[in-house]
Design a protein around this nucleic acid. Structure first.
Lengths: 137, 137
DNA sequence: CTAATCTGTAATGATTAGTATTACAGTACG
DNA sequence: CGTACTGTAATACTAATCATTACAGATTAG
């Protein structure tokens, strides 16, 4: 799994703590320790799904578009990393009963895992993450 | 995540269907569509944890050491891929409250996710996987 | 209107993770 | 002995991830 998921969480948490003004991709990228273009790519996704708004030009940047409680980690996972759990199986041998069926079986298992994980992630909203970040300063 | 986890499941399922004789790493690798050395590396792990036995030399190979119901997918995940969910965060900025705390928060969240996934995977034993593989031949 | 400051995105290059391959030592058997 | 295996290290290849460069478009300040 790439780190788009964690970068999205990082970005949203950052924005959550600056609710009154625009934050630039430079500021967020400095906080997260990655390249600004990378952050803009992630933010672009988040914008497309309506979690944040953006504004170009001087004084522009990004800002939260929803209430912190309305965005949970499962929403974020789905748009950044859905399907990432399943390791890609090489084409296995159709002549072997195991090879011929394993891929199907593994797919269904991993789908189940992801779904199950979803139930867990739904319980974490950005509000909760913000609270955790604030807890130990 | 690399595919050691799925290769381990594949190998064990293969062995489960050959309970009376040794299977070689070549046979398993052909079924799984990967290189024999790779399979031997995975099998080496499984052996170290007592799931299978091996024998060198002519007529040697690998064979299941336990009852199929005694091995569940969580056991296998733990020895092949524990911690693999967490994407590695780059060193973030200690001067920013988000950067300084996000890593700790994400770690605890991912630990929770993995633990939760464990509850799900514990319900799948190799026996169940074998049944699924046999279902549609 | 022009320069400065942003987002948006494509394209390229670097780095790292994952995998295949080679090589060879060690064990067992006939 | 020679053959057929496991066990493992070392190297090479490939694919995924990430950084960087480049530049077009939007917005604002002066």
């Amino acid at each position: 799994m790439n780190s788009d998921f964690t970068l999205a969480i990082h970005s949203l948490t950052f924005l959550a703590l600056q609710p009154d003004r625009m934050s630039t991709s430079d500021a967020i990228s400095e906080s997260a320790g990655v390249h600004p273009v990378r952050i803009r790519k992630v933010l672009s996704l988040l914008k497309k799904h309506g979690f944040i708004k953006s504004k170009e030009g001087t004084g522009g940047g990004f800002i939260f578009a929803l209430d912190l409680c309305e965005v949970n980690l499962w929403d974020i996972y789905k748009i950044t990393s859905e399907g990432a759990l399943q390791p890609k199986c090489p084409e296995s041998n159709e002549k072997c009963i195991v090879g011929a069926n394993m891929q199907r079986v593994l797919c269904s298992i991993f789908l189940g895992v992801e779904e199950h994980m979803g139930e867990y992630l739904k319980d974490y909203t950005i509000k909760e993450v913000v609270d955790l970040v604030n807890k130990r300063q």
